[in-house]
Simulated scan of single mutants.
Amino acid sequence: MFDSPLSASPYEVLGVDPAVDDAELRRAYRLRLRQTHPDTGGDAAVFIQVQRAWELIGTAEDRAAYDRRAGLTDDGGEWSGWRPQTVRTDTRPRARSYGHP
């Protein structure tokens, strides 16, 4: 099906359009599970891809986060995943949490 688990988006793995509603997404997920389940003659690698796709876009929050990262939403700016380092103004040594008080 796909050369690498990273080569296809979760929408491609589930065989749906990114604009599909949540109910249709769930139907497509359950259908793909039945088609690819190893006990029914499906491929185990593809079955795992389907499960991973659902983990990425299964809930509304996860789906919105994935769409932002993938650039599928037009929220006015691109999220790069990069955050600037926080600068420590306190130079005192930090307490260790292993074996020392």
Rank of each mutant, 00 (worst) to 15 (best):
F47G: 04
L56N: 05
D75M: 05
A53D: 03
A44C: 05
D62P: 01
D67C: 10
R52I: 02
A28C: 07
D75A: 07
V16K: 02
L33K: 08
D22Q: 10
R83C: 08
D21C: 13
R32S: 10
P10A: 01
R27W: 11
I48A: 13
L72F: 07
Q49K: 06
G77S: 12
V13K: 02
Y66D: 03
W79G: 03
E78V: 13
L14C: 01
I48V: 15
D22P: 01
L31G: 02
E55M: 06
A19Q: 14
E12P: 04
V20F: 00
R68F: 06
R34S: 15
E12C: 06
V20G: 01
A53L: 00
D43T: 12
E12I: 06
D39I: 13
A65F: 10
A28D: 04
E12T: 07
R34F: 09
W54C: 02
I57F: 04
L56I: 02
A53N: 00
I48W: 05
D43C: 14
D67A: 14
A23I: 11
G58H: 05
A45G: 13
D17A: 14
A23F: 08
A28W: 06
A45H: 12
V16A: 04
T59C: 05
L25W: 00
G42A: 14
E24R: 14
W82F: 08
T59I: 05
L14S: 04
A65P: 01
L33Y: 00
R27Y: 12
E55V: 00
V20S: 09
L72T: 02
A70F: 13
Y66Q: 06
L31R: 14
R27S: 15
G41F: 07
A60D: 14
R52L: 04
A53Y: 01
A45P: 02
E55P: 00
T73H: 03
W79R: 08
V16N: 01
A70S: 13
L25V: 03
T59E: 04
D17E: 15
T40N: 15
Y66H: 14
T59N: 04
R52Y: 02
Y29Q: 01
R27K: 15
A70N: 11
Q51D: 02
T73P: 01
V50M: 01
Q51W: 00
P10C: 01
G71S: 09
E55T: 01
A64T: 08
G42R: 11
L33I: 10
V16F: 07
V20D: 00
R32V: 03
G15W: 10
A23L: 12
T40V: 06
D22G: 03
T40W: 09
P10W: 10
G42Q: 12
T40G: 09
T73Q: 07
W82Q: 03
P18V: 10
E78F: 09
R30I: 07
W82S: 05
E24K: 12
R63W: 04
T36M: 08
A64Q: 11
A70C: 08
G77T: 06
P18M: 10
R68Y: 04
I57R: 06
D43G: 08
G42N: 13
G81Q: 03
D67G: 06
R63Y: 05
R26V: 12
I48G: 05
R69V: 09
D22H: 09
Y66T: 05
I57G: 04
